[in-house]
Each structure stands twice: as C-alpha cells, then as structure tokens.
C-alpha cells in the first residue's frame, strides 16, 4: 500500500495547477523511490515529467509499484479544499479503486478526508535519452514567464538563440518583430536573480509560445527555472520542487517546412 505525507502540501497543488491544462488523465506511478508522473499532451508535442522523491515525504511508504490513474480536473476539485499550512496525506491500496486524501490543519483541529475515484489509464512510457545539452540557462522563473507571455502577444513562435553573447528570445508577427536578450548576470546578494548561461556550442531553435506559456504555470513552484537546449532536439524546461524533486517539461521544436 501507499502512504505518503507531505508537509509542504502546496507543492502538490502547484504541480497539479502547472500541468492540468497540458494533460488531463495521467498515472501517478508510486514505488519505493517516490511518486513519478510522465504524460504527453494530446497533440504529442509536449511532455510532462515529474518526480516527487520519497525524501520529500515524511513518512513515505510504498511496498510495491502502484499506478494511480487520476483525472486532474477531479483532483483539482479535491485540492480546492487544501489550505495553506495543511499537511496532506495520500493513501491507496495495492490495487486501488480510489485514492484517499487527507488534509490536516497545522494546529490539528481540522481533518478533511476525501476519496477520489481512480481510473485505468493505459499510458505508454517514453524513453527520454540522456542528453548533453549544448546550452543550459538558469534564470529567474518570473523573467522567463514574462518573456514568453510578452512575446506571445506578438507571435505564435519564438526563436531561442544561445551564443557566447547571451540568450536571445525573438519573434516575428503580423504587427512586427520583438526580441529580448539576456546576458550572464551575477548578483551576490540576490542569487535568485542570477542569469547563468553555460554554452558548449551555439544553439538556435524555434518553439511554439503557446506551450512555453503553459509550462510557465509552474512558476509558483520555484523562483528559478532551467532551460536546456541542443540543436534539433526537444527543449527541456525544469523547475526544481523540494530537494531534488522536479517538474520537467519537454517541447519538440519547429523546423523549416
């Protein structure tokens, strides 16, 4: 059986809020190392990959592999009841029909209990090749969100170019062109504002802004975001959750027709 208690319960809500517009039904795959999720969007352009490691929970117990087939719209309805400092506990049998979710207020004077019906989801797992990315950019997540949102107002697509001079996000639309360039930036006092660009070779790739803006719904999870690029392979956008738990998004590029 599964029993997993999360003190940073808002993490669960933020993860679900970040992915529910991209994927609807997905398996939460539980085993002794933690709770994982991998799901592609309907158009097979983007992929969500989440891992909440066992260390993120206290206690965490899962004796065997359990797949929790969850409709995220339904889970969102349950998570509406979650309040800021609540502890959340997830419980399920080995072959569960439902997921038991308990919220406890930090003062332990309120316990809310929900059973969410589960579904059988036949989901293919994709092998994601280990990639040495040509460019890795770590930057404030709010900045990334602003750039994507601003450029989406002008165009459907953005070209991301990483060179030794910086990282340039540019777009061309009916009303004209726009571009934002970021350079390496170090702020010793406010490290969360740093822009770190690691480059082994120049990269230029084009992506749909609709998906990137969607990924930015994960912004509340972390004040930093990591963007990994290599020519002619999918983009990786990563938000670290707590410790080494993560939420990753992959996006296939657009290529010249």
């Amino acid at each position: 059986m599964l029993e997993a208690r999360l003190s940073q319960s808002m993490v669960l809500k933020k993860v679900v809020d970040a992915i529910k517009d991209l994927v609807q039904d997905c398996n939460f795959d539980c085993n002794d190392s933690g709770i994982a999720l991998q799901a592609m969007d309907n158009s097979h352009v983007a992929l969500v990959s989440m891992l909440l490691k066992a260390e993120s929970f206290e206690p965490y117990r899962c004796d065997r592999n359990i797949a929790l087939g969850v409709n995220l719209v339904s889970l969102t309805k349950v998570l509406r009841a979650l309040q800021n400092d609540d502890l959340v506990t997830l419980k399920a049998d080995d072959a569960p029909d439902s997921l038991n979710i308990t919220f406890e207020s930090s003062t332990a004077d309120r316990i809310s209990e929900y059973d969410l019906k589960l579904m059988d989801i036949d989901q293919e797992h994709l092998g994601i090749p280990d990639t040495e990315y040509a460019a890795t950019v770590t930057m404030p997540s709010t900045e990334f969100k602003r750039i994507c949102t601003d450029l989406q107002a002008m165009s459907e697509s953005v070209t991301i170019e990483a060179t030794k001079d910086g990282i340039k996000f540019s777009c061309a639309g009916d009303i004209g062109n726009g571009a934002v360039t970021l350079r390496n930036y170090q702020n010793v006092e406010k490290e969360h504002l740093n822009v770190d660009i690691e480059l082994t070779e120049p990269v230029s790739l084009t992506f749909s802004l609709k998906y990137l803006v969607n990924f930015c719904k994960a912004q509340p999870l972390s004040d930093r975001v990591k963007i990994c690029l290599s020519n002619e392979v999918p983009l990786l956008v990563e938000y670290l959750i707590t410790g080494t738990s993560y939420l990753r998004f992959y996006l296939a590029p657009k290529v010249r027709d």
Partner: peptide
Amino acid sequence: GKKQQSLTSFFTPK
C-alpha cells in the same frame, strides 16, 4: 513557415 515536430520522433516508447 515552420512545421511543428512531434515528440514521438525524438522519444520512443520504452
């Protein structure tokens, strides 16, 4: 114009 690639051409089922 540019054409959207599919992720399945990069990542294959396990």
